[in-house]
């Protein structure tokens, strides 16, 4: 009787179970990051836990959809919650807080740094993918997109129809960027002259990973955070616009 109840319970409410699981991950990583005295790394930490759970799911089931292959998270669970539909819906909603007057305030140098930043990351990421032996244009574009941010990677990969494995690589590349930015910014700030609002805006436009930029600048000089964030908020939107379209066309033309 008890076993039956457990089975029936685990067979229902997949979405709610998954929401509860993600809430638990967010709670635990928030606590850990506070204990470490680095509250800003909570998001990156939570995404890493997600990837680790996916690894465990993949190992246990031998499938290719991470935790979504485990039946209580499958169906309308993690697969729905972490699917491209809700992902795109929530990403688009973040554009609400974006003020065009901030871009005007950042001026030409802010706009140039955004364009250079997205192009530079995409080109360098794509070249590295090619050097390491990837030849499929859609795969190379997705990995290059991951080097832009861990959002641009999956959005591009979904558009171009690459495998989940390649999307996971692109998320990992974006995470490396985000975490590395938080860690090395305070050390490199002196060398690159990151000590005034202009250079902070340039920096936000060049690096673009919002959590990384905010975290890195906070560790350098908290007063610079809003300037960096001002340009960084445009970065992912610009990336999701140009990388899967213009970026892919260029990569495809070069590789075929």
């Amino acid at each position: 009787m008890f076993a039956n109840a457990v089975n029936l319970f685990a067979g229902a409410d997949h979405l709610i179970i998954s929401i509860a699981l993600v809430a638990l991950i967010m709670f635990v990583t928030k606590k850990i990051s506070i204990m470490m005295g680095e509250e800003r790394i909570a998001s990156a930490l939570a995404i890493i836990i997600g990837l680790v759970l996916s690894y465990i799911g993949g190992r246990v089931t031998g499938g290719s959809s991470g935790l979504a292959d485990i039946s209580i998270f499958g169906g309308a669970g993690i697969a729905l919650l972490g699917g491209s539909m809700l992902r795109d819906y929530t990403i688009i909603s973040t554009a609400y807080g974006v003020k065009l007057k901030n871009l005007k305030k950042a001026g030409p140098v802010g706009v140039i740094s955004l364009l250079v930043g997205v192009t530079f990351s995409f080109v360098v990421g794509s070249i590295i993918a090619v050097i390491l032996g990837y030849t499929d244009p859609a795969v190379v574009t997705t990995i290059g997109a991951g080097a832009v941010t861990f959002i641009v990677g999956p959005v591009t990969g979904t558009a171009l129809g690459v495998s989940s494995e390649v999307i996971a690589i692109s998320v990992a590349a974006g995470l490396v960027k985000s975490i590395l930015t938080m860690i090395i910014t305070p050390f490199i700030a002196g060398i690159v002259g990151l000590d005034n609002p202009t250079s902070a805006m340039v920096y936000g436009g060049l690096i673009g990973t919002t959590s990384g930029v905010a975290g890195g600048l906070a560790a350098t000089d908290p007063e610079l955070v809003p300037y960096g964030a001002m340009t960084a908020t445009f970065y992912t939107g610009l990336g999701t616009l140009v990388v899967p379209s213009i970026g892919f066309i260029i990569v495809r033309a070069l590789l075929t």
């Binding site: 993600v22 997600g50 697969a79 998320v171």
Partner: peptide, 8 residues
């Protein structure tokens, strides 16, 4: 949601 995406 990005965390959920990472998990799949």
């Amino acid at each position: 949601i990005i965390v959920a995406m990472a998990a799949r």
